[in-house]
Amino acid sequence: MPLSESLLTGLFVVVVVFAVLVILLALIKVFTGVIAVIGGRKRDDSAADSRGRG
């Protein structure tokens, strides 16, 4: 394999690994945000309940 081709392949591997993990990073951020919102709502509901019960 010529050097230029192997350099490109090496670079390609690094870039694709980064791209896949950056996409995962973004999706984890979204997903944890959604879970936090759902969890936050639940906490708000329970807080409202407890206030309601006085």
């Binding site: 980064f18 993990l21 995962l24 990073l25 984890i28 951020k29």
Partner: peptide
């Protein structure tokens, strides 16, 4: 700490 993924890539 999802930013750890970047270190795993590097």
């Amino acid at each position: 700490n999802p930013a750890s993924l970047l270190l795993g890539a590097a």
